[in-house]
Amino acid sequence: MRKKIRVLIAKPGLDGHDRGAKVVAKALRDAGMEVIYTGIRQTTEQIVNTAIQEDVDCLGLSILSGAHVKLFPEIVELLKKRGGEKILIFAGGIVPSEDIPELESIGISKIFGPGTSTQEIIDFIKTQIGADRKRR
């Protein structure tokens, strides 16, 4: 059994708007999780590499530049290639509603829109990871 939930909060793309990512990282830490924060401007390879080396349970992606259409599928693919397909992925930032079904279909579990409370994210992670661990 794992003692701690380990989360990677990552910012793909080039935008520097990290307010949301940092608030979420801090809230997850205060909820008792071990949070690895990558900082801004991460390439998809860097994010996946970090997720694997840090053996995280889930990966939160924050993006506001609009490049998610290109970058999210790449991350999912790379994770699969490196054996990280079990990692729970969620996302936040500005993602137009039209893009959500497609992103969900490729394996992004949940996309949190603007105005989401951090508690909602904490609850989501705890429920999902808890259920996953019971299954194992």
Partner: peptide
């Protein structure tokens, strides 16, 4: 780790 919540923020990789 935080002595209160047990959580931690690990940012050295950056």
């Amino acid at each position: 780790s935080s002595p209160f919540t047990g959580g931690a923020l690990l940012g050295d990789r950056i």
